[in-house]
Design a protein around this nucleic acid. Structure first.
Lengths: 188, 188
DNA sequence: ATCAGCATGTAAGGCGTTACATGATTCA
DNA sequence: TGAATCATGTAACGCCTTACATGCTGAT
């Protein structure tokens, strides 16, 4: 069973837009996809090999770089595009969220309000930083919205902005509620 | 490296509130924690064994059930509570989000607006269902907010409500934007 | 009688990360 | 010269899920 191997689909999705090397793919993942997906070289390169073996992608150039540095550019094949289409249209999506922050808030009673507030502040700071970046993405994208594919990128950015703003509202509300409550220590 | 083993902390956190069996722990995870954490028996029982071995939890009763059915109730030890406190106060939180829905939206250009809208509709339906449950949780919890620990549970619920409402706003907005755009098919 | 729920546990294997190994180029 | 970035890949290992194995109780 299994075949949760989403990295294959990520690679197919990226290659459907432009030809890329494994290294490029990593940069895309750490750039635009960062807010809703992660991936490391240790899963990219093996996925690339297996996709090539199965004929879903193929090499465009090897060692073609002017300097002679090794560089393998991949492109998607029609079989790969078919596979991508199948995923995009047929499968159920599974979103897996693991918020350690909320786990700590849930168990907050054990350590008291001060610790919980610290956890929330840490979260808030990260969200604020990410939100600032997302807003500049949005500004840039809204200028080129009529170009192919950009609406879809734009939507993932507005998703981030909408949810991050919700996080921030929650942070304020949580900090407003917490100090009012009686149980401040970890005594039982 | 490693020691991401959060299940240990989840168990410690739950046992700090009440004594539980492995089976009970699973129910708590599938109940209140479901919206921000997951876990299966295959990771609960081994974690329980290792926690006991290290003296962080201990057995309260075995086979104590009236009927003679095997039942192992665990409680947290002071060492366990210390470990829980350490996590709650000292460590950085890592939130890992993997939205397959957004991945599909991002790559939506390959399959066209119709497929993207279907993906969004599927997501919307799930969010609506979860939101309804969270709202009844909120109603129930707001009546007992002055009891120990309940503020913290309440906050995780309001987090869910705040973000799920943001999801829903985004779904509407996304569906409003998508049909307007020119690129409807998967032709290049 | 049968099915759902209670209850504990193991085994196999997929998924994915970190660290390592290697080496070139570019820029300060 | 040394650091950062480009670039590919492997090895070890941890995490976690699914499926299996087992058996009791209670309700219909």
């Amino acid at each position: 069973m299994a075949n949760d191997n989403k990295m294959n689909l990520v690679i197919l999705g990226l290659l459907d837009h432009e030809n890329l090397t494994g290294y490029d793919i990593k940069k895309r993942i750490d750039g635009s996809l960062r807010y809703f997906w992660k991936g490391s070289f240790g899963s990219i390169y093996p996925a690339l090999s297996s996709l090539e073996e199965n004929g879903l992608i193929k090499r465009v150039k090897s060692k073609s770089n002017a300097s002679g540095r090794e560089r393998i550019v991949y492109s998607i094949t029609s079989e790969g595009r078919e596979s991508l289409l199948g995923w995009l249209t047929e499968s159920k999506s599974s979103n897996s969220l693991k918020y350690e922050t909320l786990l700590k808030v849930y168990f907050g009673g054990a350590a008291g309000n001060v610790a919980a507030i610290a956890t929330i502040n840490e979260f808030e700071k990260e969200v604020e930083a990410d939100l600032a970046v997302l807003r500049t993405y949005k500004d840039n994208l809204s200028k080129v919205l009529n170009e192919r594919d950009h609406v879809f990128y734009y939507l993932t950015v507005t998703f981030g902005i909408e949810t991050y703003e919700a996080y921030l509202r929650w942070c304020s509300e949580a900090k407003r509620i917490l100090p009012d409550k009686k149980y401040m220590g970890n005594k039982r």
